[in-house]
């Protein structure tokens, strides 16, 4: 018999992992649609390739390496694969994505024990892994051309809004991008991160379905808003506006879909609040002072590491016992 450990209270539900994962995939589909609209067929192919390769790798690991004859694909690997695909540039070759998916599923997920036992978010860890291993492919950005069959061979590369802010200042960023562009996703960047609006719509779907921890995005985005407001008052030209920081880069994708990963975020509400604030703090620290223009993925990965400690110190009180 295999015993499972989980925090109380225990309520049985008819929902399975596969149901949850299907909902997450549905919630991410607007972002995929936006990616396809702005970056063309290639973005769509990358998204699908990420999902299929992740499921295949997981299937192989479970059935062949871990000899689990009862394993049925549950879609969790597809979510990881899709999130990773949404986190790369459209210029990324398919084999780079494949290496990333392999790292995510085989090392970050299954070496730690598989579903529900990974310490780090597999998609995020794989993204950083790719960023270190293939810096050129991962930081070459193309402008959205809006052509379905467009190729990027003869198109000039562009800078992401955050990179412009870092290198040239806020005025220059505002000349190149408007808030509407940032909201709808008409900017260069990872294929899935550009359209803040569609990510929010997908997130609202998850909230309505009751699938997601709302405390983390709330505290994360709240912290980012608070810090960027203060820094805006200090030096608007250098640090940019709060709205800019909320819409630009991977903020929405990270705060709404990556930080909220059920496995790699704290269990208690208090812990989730600490987690969110920590993510926001480190993100802004990296955006303002770090070597990278964007800090969302690094900050969430760093906070993932703190989750065991956060969980340990935010355990709910046990009532009905004598004080020891």
């Amino acid at each position: 018999m295999k015993l499972l450990t989980s925090p109380a209270p225990h309520i049985r539900t008819a929902d399975s992992t596969a149901d949850v994962m299907l909902d997450v995939l549905i919630a991410l589909s607007p972002a995929v649609a936006a990616a396809t609209y702005f970056f063309g067929l290639q973005a769509f192919i990358l998204s699908i390739a990420g999902m299929i390769s992740a499921e295949l790798i997981e299937f192989f690991i479970m059935r062949v390496l871990r000899k689990d004859k009862n394993f049925v694909p549950n879609g969790s690997a597809a979510v990881t694969g899709l999130l990773l695909a949404l986190n790369v540039s459209v210029a990324t070759p398919w084999w780079v994505l494949l290496i990333g998916v392999l790292f995510a599923i085989a090392i970050v997920k299954h070496a730690f024990g598989g579903l529900g036992q990974n310490i780090f978010n597999p998609a995020l860890a794989a993204r950083i892994f790719l960023l270190v291993s293939f810096p050129t492919a991962m930081t070459t950005w193309y402008p959205p051309i809006g052509k379905f069959f467009g190729t990027y061979a003869d198109i000039q590369t562009t800078a992401t809004p955050l990179a412009v802010l870092k290198l040239e200042g806020f005025n220059s960023a505002m000349q190149k991008f408007t808030y509407t562009d940032l909201l709808f996703g008409n900017i260069g960047g990872c294929i899935g991160e550009t359209s803040a609006l569609l990510l929010i719509i997908g997130f609202l779907y998850l909230v309505l379905r009751g699938r997601i921890k709302i405390v983390i995005p709330a505290t994360y985005l709240g912290t980012v808003f608070a810090i960027s407001s203060i820094m805006y008052l200090v030096n608007p030209e250098k640090f940019g506006t709060p709205l800019f920081h909320l819409l630009a880069g991977g903020m929405m994708l990270g705060a709404l879909f990556m930080a909220t990963d059920m496995v790699t975020s704290p269990m208690t509400l208090k812990g989730q609040a600490i987690f969110g604030v920590g993510c926001g703090l480190i993100t802004m620290l990296i955006r303002y002072f770090g070597g990278y223009p964007e800090g969302v993925s690094l900050s969430i990965l760093l906070m993932n590491a703190f989750v065991p400690i956060i969980d340990r110190y935010t355990q709910p009180k046990i009532f009905g016992r004598r004080k020891s």
């Binding site: 950083i128 892994f129 990296i286 770090g290 990278y292 990965l301 993932n304």
Partner: peptide, 10 residues
């Protein structure tokens, strides 16, 4: 160690 790269250049 990968995660700590975020502090690089600060």
């Amino acid at each position: 160690s990968l995660a700590f790269m975020g502090f690089q250049g600060m």
